[in-house]
Design a protein around this nucleic acid. Structure first.
Lengths: 124, 124
DNA sequence: CTTGACCTTCACATCAATGTGAGGGTTCGA
DNA sequence: TCGAACCCTCACATTGATGTGAAGGTCAAG
């Protein structure tokens, strides 16, 4: 598929698909005329990127993380330098912390909403 | 305490403490000479703000969420307009989605790291 | 052959969070 | 009384993720 279709199917502006490519997060083949072509696997990948960006991770980190997410459980660590592993461990912990924070606050918001709902129902 | 101490205890630049105040996320009393003074409760609050910012929430949303997190379970919904409740529900769901995304990816990274560690131990 | 809907690159703009520093007041101890 | 260590406001800079649009190439259908 070309960029327009990927854009539509992922709800992502073309501009950003090009940006993600520039940042090394996705790769696109090119048609003879220079148009980008994507295969289906890019669909999930783009959604993954968007989710992580929305969760506060910068593209720099997402780029490190993506190789860990290859569909086939085939893990290629020949390129796994110690520094990179340390970065990943760090980031794993930061993600865990984010999850904790989000969960705590999400639950508080949910409780609040439940309380409001109860209150309203009681007064009806 | 004054801004320097709060900054040190929360690991937050003074600049940002002033910024958070400007955005309505924290409030500070003032000494006669204009210096900001904070009480202990601001410590947790600042950490909470930082956590949420790090998790991708903008100050605009954090401001909406904070009132749900008052220590005492005393909830004051007199000001809870329907639009605000809708926003909160929306944001609650977005947070849930973020948690899902982060968890999935964090687990993938963790698995990857475990696999690398196993591999290394096997080759020793 | 032209029109419209695609695509390309390039560049400048914006927005939120943050950095940085100037210019200046306050407080306190040597 | 002077200097160090605080604090203030104001303002401009930067960074990363985006928006927007110009100038132009490609291609299929009328």
């Amino acid at each position: 598929m070309r960029i327009g279709e990927l854009s539509e199917r992922t709800g992502t502006p073309r501009r950003l698909l090009r940006y993600y490519e520039e940042q090394g997060l996705i790769v696109a083949d090119r048609l003879p005329n220079g148009y980008r072509v994507y295969d289906e696997s890019n669909l999930d990948r783009v959604l993954q990127i968007r989710g992580l960006l929305d969760a506060g991770l910068p593209t720099r980190i997402i780029k490190q993380i993506l190789p860990c997410l290859n569909k086939p459980r085939i893990i290629h660590f020949p390129d796994a330098t110690p520094e990179m592993l340390a970065t990943l461990e760090d980031e794993r912990d930061r993600m865990t912390e984010r999850i904790r924070c989000l969960t705590r606050n999400r639950d508080a918001v949910a409780e609040y909403l439940d309380a409001v709902r109860e209150k309203r129902e009681a007064s009806v």
